[in-house]
Design a binder for these strands. Structure first.
Lengths: 232, 232
DNA sequence: ACCTGAACACCGTTCAAGT
DNA sequence: ACCTGAACACCGTTCAAGT
């Protein structure tokens, strides 16, 4: 009996008093996101959230099913910052690109959030708003519904993965990789050796990839052109 | 002073005797992969690997820097099963697709492996072999080196992400998602509502996505056509 | 010098005992 | 009925004490 956490009723806390705010799912999610922003994924444990709220870890289970649900709630809360209405008057491709770059920025702005997005299937109101907007743009572009649905999945999965990959790469990890690629033997891996400068890439990779995706999507329709509305 | 674990010299164990094999990085990696295959990511902890080898968790640190390095070694060991030579005589696009589907199959065959691939930057010999082969196919396709380098990144990142996403989706997670998408309000999210059947997609999604990527890549060159060999 | 048991500082989750 | 401290079953990593 799992319920949709975004539709679950608020549980009113019995604790009152002036000293500390009463617990609520709202407060727990806010506290968790604050800890995540401050200390990264290591900072957002149930125990640390509970400690920040001056209670024991067991108390949170009255408001949240488990850690996974808390992560889903925190993710959707963070996704509130994604701009879904930028680029008015631009071409639909440009609007999609701007939306996705905003999504990426939000994921990268909070350490550990991209990792959560990678392991959490987002179905909160903000994730739905993003999906709805992307479907709208693709519809404007003349794509049929089936293609648009898969396109949204492809686009968001790629951007999420890029953000997650990027968030892994700090100074500790980039160094060894650069050394490994730089040390590759020209005899054994001639093409990697020849392309090693290009592989240790720079900026512009994500924009290029989004161009690739959009061009490819337009040319790979899955069904028929949409005619007017529904058809059996 | 991090070293490349794939080039580090083997550390010979001092423990002998007939009762248990002497420890070695080889044996540790093999044991870890076996545990991962049997019990998933929860089964591959340093403590469980040590227990399976009849020793304490501290012993492994003579052969492996930390858990992350062990994961990288296990990943590359598993990638040995990826077929890089299938599809002789086929078009280069087909050969890339077959390679990537093999890569995906390997990631999905061992529970938790895709998650490791998502958080580990693969620079082991098998990862290099895969990259080298993909660069070769893209070169056959006439792509310049810079585009090919980014294309390899895009293709492998997408497939890795799909595998990681897929491995998250067991009966426990697919149910709630289907319910959430199915319960979406037609007024608030009309396009999601209209496309809900398409969103709860089926097979063929990855093949479609690879078509999209390959078509888009061919049409989005980053530099100039390659002429013969190197040029300053 | 090499190896490792025990300890340290954490986890998520459960449950019995409190109010 | 609600809340939560303590307990349970784990982690990765370190280190002092052994051989």
């Amino acid at each position: 009996m799992t319920r949709n956490p975004f539709q679950a009723p608020e549980v009113a806390s019995r604790r009152g008093g002036p000293a500390k705010d009463p617990l609520s799912r709202e407060l727990i999610v806010t506290t968790a996101l604050t800890l995540l922003r401050r200390e990264g994924s290591a900072g957002m444990s149930l125990r640390k959230v509970a400690a920040a709220l001056d209670t024991g870890p067991a108390s949170l289970y009255a408001y949240v099913e488990n850690l996974q649900e808390l992560q889903a709630l925190v993710l959707d809360r963070a996704l509130a910052d994604v701009h879904t209405d930028a680029g008015h008057g631009q071409r639909w491709q440009r609007r999609i690109t701007e939306l996705l770059l905003s999504y990426r920025e939000v994921l990268c702005a909070t350490p550990g959030l991209a990792g959560i997005a990678m392991t959490t299937i987002a179905v909160g109101p903000n994730a739905l708003r993003i999906t709805e907007t992307l479907l709208g743009h693709l519809d404007k572009g003349g794509l049929d519904r089936a293609t648009a649905a898969w396109a949204v999945d492809l686009l968001t999965l790629y951007v999420t993965a890029v953000a997650a990959e990027h968030s892994q790469r700090d100074a500790d990890t980039l160094g060894p990789v650069a050394r490994a690629i730089g040390a590759v033997s020209a005899e054994e891996y001639p093409r990697i050796f020849a392309a090693r400068e290009d592989i240790l890439m720079g900026p512009g990779r994500v924009s290029w990839a989004l161009d690739v995706l959009l061009k490819g999507i337009v040319q790979t329709p899955r069904g028929h052109r949409r005619r007017s509305a529904e058809h059996g």
